[in-house]
Design a protein around this nucleic acid. Structure first.
Lengths: 177, 177
DNA sequence: AGTCAGCAATTGATTGGTCAGTAATTGAGA
DNA sequence: TCTCAATTACTGACCAATCAATTGCTGACT
């Protein structure tokens, strides 16, 4: 351990730089220990861990990644209504190239089908195949279990509504640029 | 639109497969529209969007990625106390190879320094450089602004404690295998 | 009607991570 | 004391995303 208090003592002369550096270290420590930083870290960390768990479970049990599952959710919401790649990209927070390649892999795996958009020839619509819907159903069961276990069970019933309301607010704030 | 109700009507004979497929489509729609799926999606989506914003802001204004910032937080918590790569990896939910390469880049950028662990020669400790702490201070300011704006401001003051408590619970649930 | 700025999708090059496998080190049990 | 299973970091091969640049299409403005 380096002595901090001593280093900071004034009047020894000739140590301005190391004093400044030490002071900076203390400020940094202060910032690093802020409770807000911690709480916020919790949000990000909980989310990533959660996503990882779900991803590995889905891969293991259904052979689809979590992102693919997210696509399938959108495609199954109302049957017989395709969704444009653009919309999917926005919804999943992916770039358009990201979506192109994701849909490539899903098409490859027989989960979805690309269909040209009748209204706008730039746009490509994506539709789930029957196989895609079958896989989705299994995946949804796995997903539901994990959500129950890690999202519902741990938080007191009364707080749950408030939790999702808060998330909704945050999401809303992000929405507006 | 394909007719769903009609397809499902029994007694026409010879259409068992398409009926089954349609029924599956309806089940899928049901699962896809579950409010739990939606609410949970909110958590993941809010988190990823948030992280992306912070990442781009930090890159633009301080030249560090969000993950690098997370490392710096850990290293600055108590000055003069190095942290092992192992610990960093666990804390950031990265694999050990992930951390190796991340520390490589950070060392390259002069933000951190590797020092051999005195107690265990397998382990490598990481320490922030003076430059690292300086950058961290700027980054922390940027970070704080964004956290204030997107994590604090949007949710009613009274709910904030509950929000972080819930996140904490979730995090706890994830912790135990 | 003709132009042109903007948008959708795609592709090549790059980035930041994973996984599988390896070498060095450790500590617990025979 | 020796051995051996576990643990740390690292490396090569791969993967899924990004960015930047390109192509084709659209719609608004002159």
């Amino acid at each position: 351990m380096r002595g901090q208090a001593q280093d900071r003592a004034q009047g020894k002369g000739g140590h301005g730089q190391v004093e400044a550096a030490t002071r900076r270290g203390d400020e940094a420590a202060h910032a690093a220990n802020s409770p807000l930083v911690h709480d916020f870290g919790l949000l990000l960390k909980a989310a990533t861990r959660l996503e990882q768990r779900i991803d590995t479970a889905l891969r293991r049990e259904c052979g689809v990644s979590h992102t693919m599952f997210e696509v399938l959710i959108r495609l199954c919401r109302q049957p017989d209504e395709e969704v444009s790649q653009r919309r999917l990209a926005d919804d999943l927070t992916l770039t358009s190239s990201g979506i192109t390649r994701l849909v490539d892999r899903m098409e490859e795996a027989g989960l979805v089908r690309r269909v040209p958009s009748p209204g706008d020839r730039r746009s490509v619509l994506v539709d789930s195949t029957d196989h895609g819907r079958t896989v989705f159903l299994q995946a949804a069961a796995v997903h539901a279990d994990l959500v129950e276990r890690y999202f519902v069970a741990p938080v007191p019933h009364d707080d749950h509504g408030r939790l999702t309301a808060s998330l909704s607010r945050i999401h809303e704030a992000l929405r507006e640029d």
